[in-house]
């Protein structure tokens, strides 16, 4: 089989928008919704996921020739769990307050289907350099999505962003937004917006193409 031509820049950029893990592939939803009730929590969680994804992609990609196919999934899970434990204890030591708020959701990074999905679909097949670029792009896209959702929910739900008040005293917090239903509704609306932008962009490109043919 001929090796697919790889372009490092493309592998990096695709995760941010075109194949964004959250908005397009709808992976890793559980932590996505559970911890985005404030922008700060979203960032801590996003960075932890970033670390785990990049580190395990690097590890698995470098070990790809030694991992037997039959036991690969279990091995991936054990490698991911090791890095998650590292991240968990690091956050506990450096940011105890954030660790308390995120609670059980840091260990749950292990079962984030986005991470296992990237190992299976990409890191285990391609050279280390591209695997790391792909992981950075995907994790960046995830962080971007977390931040978008966390900011919207915090601004509407408490009227602050990173604990800095944005509105005057007259602002009545929309409490539902920081409660579970707000997570579902906000992500639903963001997805809707994403679909709309993608559709409009497609239409625009098509229009340009037909105009060019006319000339």
């Amino acid at each position: 089989m001929k090796q697919k031509e790889l372009d490092g820049y493309q592998e990096f950029v695709k995760g941010i928008w075109r194949e964004n893990p959250v908005f397009v592939q709808v992976l890793g939803m559980c932590p996505m919704l559970a911890v985005t009730n404030s922008a700060m929590n979203a960032v801590v969680m996003g960075v932890a996921t970033f670390f785990v994804l990049v580190a395990s992609s690097f590890m698995i990609s470098s070990l790809q020739h030694w991992i037997p196919r039959q036991v690969r999934i279990s091995l991936y899970i054990v490698i991911i769990a090791t890095f998650v434990t590292l991240a968990d204890y690091t956050i506990l030591a450096t940011l105890p307050a954030a660790h308390k708020q995120l609670g059980a959701f840091i260990p749950l990074i292990v079962v984030n289907c986005m991470i296992l999905g990237r190992q299976e679909a990409f890191a285990s097949r391609f050279p280390v350099k591209y695997a790391v670029l792909d992981a950075v792009g995907m994790a960046g896209g995830f962080l971007f999505a977390m931040l978008a959702l966390g900011s919207v929910r915090e601004i509407l739900g408490t009227g602050t962003l990173f604990d800095i008040p944005l509105f005057g005293k007259g602002f009545e917090p929309w409490v539902t937004m920081i409660l579970p239903p707000g997570g579902f509704l906000t992500l639903g609306l963001i997805l809707l917006f994403f679909n709309w932008v993608t559709k409009k962009r497609g239409e625009f490109l098509q229009q340009v193409a037909t105009e060019r043919e006319g000339l």
């Binding site: 707000g182 509704l185 639903g188 679909n195």
Partner: peptide
């Protein structure tokens, strides 16, 4: 997914 999420909300 967008509709499913809103229903879930």
């Amino acid at each position: 997914t967008a509709m499913n999420l809103i229903v879930a909300g």
